[in-house]
Design a protein around this nucleic acid. Structure first.
Lengths: 167, 167
DNA sequence: TGTTGACCTTAACCTAACTTGAGGTTTTAG
DNA sequence: CTAAAACCTCAAGTTAGGTTAAGGTCAACA
């Protein structure tokens, strides 16, 4: 019974104001190690109690939720961290902060969706041509900006460089 | 002048039937090392000449183009490899093969686009609520299947487990 | 024919995003 | 008060998708 305030919260209080790493792990569905990792990367923050154990304020739950949502869109952790940094670290963010974040994500998502949609439409055309005629196949010149994100793909062959099978 | 057929093709013929690794690299925009890597992973195939150098048939250009397109959609190499395996390795695929592939990709893309779109729409709602009211925020229960692809995210908190800031 | 440039293989290294393990301290429950 | 569960740190391992380097062979061209 050393952590008076903490223990007070533990006593059947459904809305604790501080959370241990294990509690956060259970509630967010990420492992304890991952929470350590996120903290190391600056995505979340914690206080320490007298015994050097992490104590989180409840906003960490929301932060982790946001991290997961963003990851599912394919946004890398580093970028997520930058966006999260607009939120006051530690304590509760106000409506404005969250709106700011949400709008940022939405823009990112919109852009990704647009890119994928383009790609799909191009592929649809490919289905029509059976990709037999490279001269008219949109695979030839992608015309999008996603390439910059991926590992490779910095050059696209011009029409006369791609193969045209002998019929 | 040892590689008779090969050299014959080299002589100012714009449509060579065999390509060296360097040529493929230039035309596809991926590095030679990456081509080795893809071959090792079974994504592309090659023959060897008398001097043990790789010689590619022209279909490799299209294969690599497809790999890149697929990668931009976020599909992992292993999955790309499986889809590519429906194509006859080495020689020219017919229209049916390519159509089969294109349709497979399109389905994948459609699904990914749908997931991202859902996510965006949920986020749009969040912008409205400012994420201040977790009780109504869609971030709470994602309801999608993308989680299975990511590294973590196997559990989502129920409504009373997420934090509701003190106003 | 000889010298570059293109290729070959093997092996190590790189970033992202984690996971696993070892060895030691704190908290909690009985 | 004590044993077990939860935590701590630090280091090493893992997968994906490549890149870089070392040391040696092959080919193209004057």
């Amino acid at each position: 019974m050393s952590e008076t305030n903490y223990v007070k919260n533990q006593l059947k209080n459904p809305l604790k104001t501080v959370l241990s790493v294990g509690e956060v792990a259970k509630r967010t569905g990420v492992s304890v190690a991952t929470l350590h990792f996120y903290e190391q990367k600056g995505l979340i923050h914690s206080q320490r109690n007298a015994g050097n154990q992490r104590r989180y304020s409840r906003d960490v739950l929301r932060r982790v939720a946001i991290i997961k949502v963003a990851q599912r869109t394919g946004i890398p952790l580093e970028q997520i961290g930058k966006a999260l940094s607009v939120l006051p670290p530690g304590q509760n963010a106000d409506q404005h902060h969250w709106q700011q974040m949400s709008e940022q994500w939405k823009a990112e998502l919109d852009s990704r969706i647009a890119q994928l949609t383009d790609l799909r439409d191009q592929l649809s055309m490919c289905i029509g041509c059976g990709c037999l005629s490279m001269a008219h196949c949109p695979l030839r010149n992608p015309q999008d900006k996603l390439a910059a994100q991926g590992a490779g793909a910095h050059f696209y062959p011009t029409s006369d460089e791609l193969d045209e099978p002998e019929r």
